[in-house]
Amino acid sequence: MSQFLFRAALLALMCLTGSPALSNTFTIAAAADLRFALDEIIEAFRDHHPQYQVRVVYGSSGKMTTQILNGAPYDLFFSADISFPERLHAAGMTASDPAVYALGRIVLWSNSLDASSLSLADLATDTRIRRIAIAQPAHAPYGQRAREALQAAGVWDAVQPKLVFGENIAHAAQMVESGAANVGIIALSLALFPRLAEHRYHLIDEQLHQPLTQGFVVTRRGANRPGVQAFSEFMAGEQAHTIMRRFGFAMPDADRPGRTD
């Protein structure tokens, strides 16, 4: 009898999988360049709306897009490039039109060299630079822009043997921060994070690459989820904009047609 009870208890335990549905929780998928700015914005949002729990997952925009296409439970998606939300929109996975929320910039950054005195051309010739970290261009917008800038500067082929690839832009920044790479092309928003801001950066000329038009979208899953609308609105508000500007983002023009509403 006791054995039967034991086995029944095991069975009951096994049926208890899964956490209960949390109705006031919503989940944000966000590009890795937002890692520090968005953490702060979420904190500010929670001060205004303490009834909501916000979960956030960071990664490369391309990876997040693939995950959403494969059914990942994200309610909002903040991409580093609007082309990814547009792709989801075209696939019928969204509940809102993709909208621009910020414009990003790329910088040269190092924690061992004075990056502010480096140029892209130096990356090929400077013998102190043996490893250059960028994000994976295949699925990370910041990696694509880094590649474009290196190509425009005419050093893409020359730097090939020195390149190491981060899974996303925060990973690339971490490679440089840890000293594994001597220099990296990272997001300005990460170079301005206090831990990294101790070292100087070189802002890369935005004429050298396509703009980092950062777009967001409400996914189909997030359509009627409480808090999602409130967060979208909060992101367009002055408090969020102030934080975003502090992390080096430019805010989109209010009159950009069809993008900011």
């Binding site: 956490s19 890795a32 979960r55 997952v57 960071y58 990664g59 995950q67 831990r195």
Partner: peptide, 22 residues
């Protein structure tokens, strides 16, 4: 699983995440 807090974010994945966040 991705890295969803409370759902699929296990210790090994969180360590990876912490490292990436420096």
């Amino acid at each position: 699983g991705g890295s969803i807090p409370g759902e699929t974010q296990v210790l090994s994945v969180l360590i990876y995440d912490h490292t990436e966040a420096m």
